[in-house]
Amino acid sequence: MYSRRAAGGVLALVTGAALLAGTAPAQAVAAEFPAGDEGYHTYAEVTTELQKAAANHPDIAVLSSVGKSYEGRELNLIKISDNAAADEGEPEVLFTCNQHAREHLTTEMCLHIVQRFTEGYANDPHIRSMVDGHVIWVVPNVNPDGSEYDISDTDYKYWRKNRRPVEDGKIGTDLNRNWGYKWGCCDGSSTRPASDTYRGPSAFSEPETQAVSRFVDSRAAGGKQRIKAHIDFHTYSELVLWPFGHTQDDTGEGMTAEENARFRDVGQRMAATNQYKAQQSSDLYVTDGDINDWMWGTHKILTFTFEMYPTSPFPGFYPPDEEIVRETTRNDAAVDILISEAR
Rank of each mutant, 00 (worst) to 15 (best):
E307S: 00
R116L: 04
V29K: 02
T247M: 00
I127N: 03
D124C: 08
K79G: 04
P165T: 00
W183A: 03
L239F: 14
D59F: 11
E45F: 08
Y276P: 02
S69A: 09
V46H: 10
P310D: 09
L105W: 11
P34S: 01
D82P: 01
T15E: 10
G89F: 12
S205G: 02
Q115W: 12
A221G: 05
S65F: 11
N292D: 15
V142H: 04
E32R: 14
A7E: 11
G36R: 06
Y156D: 06
M308F: 02
M109R: 09
S340A: 15
S312F: 13
D232W: 05
S218R: 01
V62K: 14
C97E: 00
G9N: 11
S190R: 09
R164N: 11
S69K: 13
A101T: 10
T298A: 11
N260A: 12
A334F: 08
D37Y: 09
A221N: 05
K228D: 14
V216E: 01
V114G: 05
F304I: 06
R5H: 11
P140L: 12
I78M: 00
K52R: 15
R264T: 13
L241F: 04
D132F: 15
N292Y: 00
V114L: 03
V166W: 05
A211P: 04
R177M: 01
M130A: 07
E238M: 13
I339W: 14
A229Y: 08
Q225E: 01
V138Q: 07
M109G: 05
R219V: 09
D196E: 15
A271M: 10
S340V: 05
T47Y: 06
T42Y: 03
N274H: 12
L175T: 00
A7K: 10
F95N: 00
Q99R: 13
L11T: 11
M1E: 07
D293N: 07
R177F: 01
V325H: 08
L77I: 06
V93S: 04
A44M: 02
S282L: 13
I171S: 01
A229K: 03
C110W: 01
M130I: 10
E258D: 14
A221M: 04
P58H: 03
K79Y: 12
V335A: 07
G200N: 05
D290S: 14
D155W: 09
T47P: 04
E71F: 14
T329W: 13
S81C: 02
V139A: 08
W137D: 00
S282K: 07
A229L: 06
R73N: 09
E148Q: 15
A61Y: 03
S195A: 15
D232M: 07
R160D: 05
T48P: 06
A257L: 11
V29H: 08
R163K: 01
G223L: 07
H126A: 15
R102W: 10
T287S: 10
A86V: 10
L338K: 03
Y309I: 06
Y2L: 07
I227Y: 03
N123I: 06
E45H: 09
R192M: 02
A271Y: 13
L302N: 09
T298G: 06
A53H: 10
A211T: 04
R160Q: 05
A101I: 14
N83L: 13
G67T: 09
L13V: 15
T328Y: 13
K157R: 13
E327I: 03
Y309M: 08
R102D: 12
D217C: 02
Y43F: 15
S3L: 06
